[in-house]
Design a protein around this nucleic acid. Structure first.
Lengths: 363, 363
DNA sequence: CTGAAAGCGCTTACAG
DNA sequence: CTGAAAGCGCTTACAG
């Protein structure tokens, strides 16, 4: 056994000071103490007594027991954070960080659990959280998709993070991929590009469709006709290199909007082989902001950042608004929340992606 | 307010079935039910009664209330997971995933909190977890260092993750950086390298010193004299490129062991400029396994992977062993745990880094 | 083999 | 303004 286990175990028996202890010490009843400790003493307890109670509580180092309070009130100030698979994508765990920050500011803590994309395990884990009386759930996915809310969650306030409830019933917070497609394309247009390739994903995920839609909208607004031949959808594992070659050899665009940073590396490689200078001969923009890519490849890649932190933060804000009412979250401000624009449609909240300007766009 | 908030709020009042309900239904007392539900009925409750209780419990969908049990027993089966700053490093949140998996298998759940490297916030957050009666703590850092355990944690069983308790008192689980340095260097030696550069970190973090030590041990074992001139410590932000150039222009090694993948990209760039072929003219190995680097650069980079998942898993295993005894964790097996070798020294557990072979080493 | 009772720490009507 | 009492759901001696 580990060396220090014994000495550590000893301390476990230490009983914390309770409301009863301070009642005895202050010479009042427990209910008076309770009133005061919950700041419900106004016009119910004399100033002097309240004063004394507060003082002795402080002296004795009183900390309210959340477990007891939960049992009594069946309100735990606790949120279940359920993920399908955390962190297969780097930085996706920023979602958790945002959720934790918001929760902390609102007086909540998070019970987190990972379902490994296993429906049975998911059920078990959620049931476990339920037994701990969590007040609500964050149902967080690894990427933007239409998702079915598990049945066990019915009856518990829930907010979906980085996905949309397929049934359209549960509030959902996710990136505005249409706007990201628009912003990225618009950025190229503003840089003077007129022949813009969308180097997209051949997998029909939500982001692909919406980013393409945004691409088309930006073109339309600029009066540039849409040309199907400029849409090149690829798979990282199969035809990405070949299609990147074709982009330069046949299409010869002046701007390229890549679905993500990884795909952009194929464009970079093809450009290098042809001595096409990105940031000088052709402009490139993409989405994801994986610093290990965007800062490492030359020239550094201009890209849009998915609002991971903000999604977590906003989802908690909405969940607590459901739980405790809008006033409870009124003065909650995200440190970085100002960077995103919300776009609401019923119970859906699409968060704008921030653009990170680097050197891959021709000035 | 969000559309569905009202319908969601309604369900909150739903009371779950309790031990009392099933006692009434089965015509027995609550304590008999309690005994049975906790499988303590052997030789204390008749088989028939136990049978009946189990059946009605199942019928009524009984779920034990963990909050009540915690209040009564002051054992919550709950662990506090405290991080300094989650996920500034991609995949570092694998630590959490490993911890969650182990916790789930051992019947624990995690309360997670983020201190943002703020001592005051850290105190608050830990105090909050204490109020929820967590049985113990994981104190998880973002990278391997000597760390001071906050005072609030005293008295609570704690295991440090990805760092070492500076005082040497609290059990600590971290990567075996010395062995990583040894393994990386040894891998180059086995590939025939004799003139091996250690392209390290100019920041004196724990990993730097230990990897260098491992490098020297491997050299010594192979009978290769250590040459201080082959140690090139750099900073990513300042002299990495210049020093990488010097490695090729002056030192001309046949093998390069890079402190991490990001540094390896400087070596790659310098090699490319000089038309030195990595994987053919010179062998390169590094540490981190950031797939976005290692798989993207050509040739793909052979590298060692930090045991993030395993550290989280192992730390929970040790913590629960302290809490519930060694037998409680006896049949816990990590899905991937077999890939690591533990190296124990008192309360310290160093986990081996797995080597991921790719194409940057000359065959 | 089974039940009555106390109690974990707290909150909340209720009575005075 | 203050206190006695009940109860949240459970477990654990104790008695029979």
């Amino acid at each position: 056994m580990v060396q220090s286990s014994v000495s550590q175990r000893v301390n476990r028996s230490k009983r914390l000071v309770s409301i009863k202890d301070i009642a005895k010490e202050a010479g009042v009843s427990v209910c008076t103490v309770s009133l005061v400790m919950n700041n419900k003493d106004h016009n119910r307890v004399s100033k002097a007594v309240a004063q004394k109670i507060r003082a002795t509580a402080k002296n004795m180092g009183y900390k309210p027991n959340s477990v007891a309070r939960t049992l009594r009130t069946s309100k735990s100030n606790t949120l279940g954070f359920v993920t399908d698979e955390i962190a297969t994508t780097p930085y996706a765990s920023k979602v958790l960080e945002g959720a934790q920050d918001a929760a902390s500011k609102l007086g909540y803590i998070l019970l987190t659990t990972n379902t490994n994309n296993d429906a049975e395990l998911e059920n078990q884990e959620i049931s476990a959280l339920l037994r701990y009386n969590v007040d609500g759930f964050l149902y967080a996915m690894m990427f933007h998709r239409k998702v079915d809310i598990p049945e066990v969650l019915e009856g518990s306030p829930t907010v979906v993070v980085d996905s949309e409830d397929a049934a359209g019933r549960v509030p959902s917070v996710y990136p505005d991929d249409e706007l990201a497609g628009y912003d990225a394309t618009d950025c190229l247009i503003k840089a003077g590009c007129r022949r813009i390739v969308y180097y997209g994903s051949a997998t029909p995920i939500v982001a692909q469709g919406q980013r393409l839609t945004g691409y088309r909208r930006a073109l339309a607004e600029a009066g540039i006709p849409f040309d199907d031949a400029l849409v090149v959808n690829v798979l990282e594992t199969t035809n990405a290199a070949a299609e990147a070659a074709r982009v330069f050899d046949e299409i010869k665009p002046d701007g390229i909007f890549c679905f993500n940073d990884v795909r952009a590396t194929f464009i970079y490689e093809a450009a290098r082989e042809r001595r096409v200078r990105i940031g000088a001969d052709v402009s490139v923009i993409s989405i994801d902001n994986q610093p290990f890519i965007t800062n490492v490849i030359k020239p550094s890649l201009t890209t849009l950042e998915l609002p991971h932190y903000e999604m977590g933060f906003e989802a908690v804000r909405q969940l607590v608004a459901i739980l405790d009412g809008d006033k409870a979250v009124a003065d909650l401000e995200s440190d970085r929340g100002m960077a995103v624009q919300r776009q609401r449609d019923g119970s859906k909240t699409a968060l704008r992606c921030r653009i990170i300007e680097r050197d891959s766009i021709v000035l």
